[in-house]
Write a protein that binds this DNA or RNA. Structure first.
Lengths: 113, 113
DNA sequence: GGCTTATACATCGAACTGCAAGGCATAGTC
DNA sequence: GACTATGCCTTGCAGTTCGATGTATAAGCC
């Protein structure tokens, strides 16, 4: 019998952060790398080697749409959330809270009235 | 220059849960598998294939000590936290809270006064 | 007696992340 | 003309986690 499974658990935090930061305003990859560092006060630093593959994957799956723009001789690719991407963000956020909530409960102890 | 790195990030949740549950009372592997399921209200289910290797690794590194005991024809291996294991638990817990706190901040948005 | 389920240990291969490193190109600065 | 910052990208490695599988005993059921 197949085991009940936690769908990969806590992975996908980079994906979660990227989706969340793209909610509301479009950004390009390099910008996201720095935004993540700032938004987490240096706690989380994702390299380009993490962010770009995530962006490509999310676009391939329809969660993001992109737009090319030249700026001062440089070519930026701006990404924005699609409706599907917003749904995805909501799903992952919820899942994230369920799981970290469960862990938090365990850490805080069985009962500390 | 070497990139600043987040030390493996969010992995090691099984380890964290095992250490936490062993704080205070000793348990054996099979018991831990179920305790984790119950303590998280079925949110997190770790198979034996996850728990046993973690136990072996933690013992090998001195965070756990074990004791064999026969119960009703079955042989159980009880694990308990060593002082080193307690330190390890504290470190990981702190790190866990720093990181999930940072993520929570991002999820909640830049400012929602 | 024969079947299934629960207890209890264990290992292995596959899959997936995430990371560091590196590569390419332009623009600005000293 | 060398170095840094910006901006894109890919690849190989290492570490986790997962699911499946294996072994053995005990207990319940028909």
């Amino acid at each position: 019998m197949p085991r009940a499974t936690n769908p990969n658990f806590l992975n996908g935090v980079p994906e979660l952060l990227v989706l969340r930061l793209l909610r509301g305003r479009e950004m390009y990859g390099y910008e996201l790398v720095q935004a993540i560092r700032e938004a987490t006060s240096e706690t989380i630093t994702l390299g380009e080697g993490v962010v770009y593959p995530v962006l490509h994957m999310l676009e391939r799956e329809g969660a993001l749409a992109s737009r090319r723009q030249a700026v001062a001789g440089r070519s930026r690719i701006y990404y924005r959330l699609t409706p599907q991407g917003e749904r995805r963000l909501n799903d992952i956020s919820q899942s994230w809270e369920r799981i970290t909530g469960a862990i938090r409960n365990v850490l805080e102890g069985p009962r500390h009235a």
